[in-house]
């Protein structure tokens, strides 16, 4: 008897395996990132204390916080995008429609992640008070 094959299932790409790993890894990392973020924003500070000056002096001035926020942005963005792609895959069965929506989503995601990263890490910025 030879190795089994199936006519029902033929696509054997590795992408979904990597995507599954990404979901597990980003899901685990998001938990501490989000809870620390929530604690800083809503427990230790509030809408009355968080303003332009606070962000510049307490957050943006320290490279560590900017990297922290970039991680949060990337992990939440990738996790959310891939989750949405999975939900789409369940309900959109027309291949071209599915591809079109995913390309649109991918474009938005890249724009959000790209602009966010530039704002956090790369952009030259001189605070104005």
């Amino acid at each position: 008897m030879t190795a089994p094959t199936s006519s029902l299932l033929h696509d054997r790409g590795r992408f979904e395996a990597y995507a599954w790993r990404l979901m597990r890894l980003s899901g685990i990392l998001i938990i501490p990132l989000v809870f620390v973020h929530l604690a800083i924003m809503h427990l230790f500070n509030s809408v009355y204390t968080i303003d332009y000056q606070w962000v510049v002096e307490k957050r943006w001035a320290l490279l560590g916080w900017r990297i922290y926020d970039a991680f949060l942005l990337w992990f939440a963005g990738l996790h959310g995008f891939n989750g949405l792609r999975n939900v789409l895959k369940d309900y959109v069965h027309h291949k071209l429609v599915y591809r079109g929506i995913v390309i649109a989503m991918l474009t938005v995601m890249m724009a959000v992640l790209g602009l966010g990263t530039i704002a956090l890490i790369g952009a030259p910025f001189s605070p104005v008070f």
């Binding site: 190795a3 696509d11 790409g13 395996a17 995507a19 599954w20 369940d90």
Partner: peptide, 20 residues
């Protein structure tokens, strides 16, 4: 001895990855 082939079948688009 056909475990790898079965894994390849289940790794396809309509295989295990549709599980949430």
């Amino acid at each position: 001895t056909a475990g790898d082939s079965r894994l390849a079948i289940l790794a396809s688009e309509k295989g295990v990855w549709r599980c949430r």
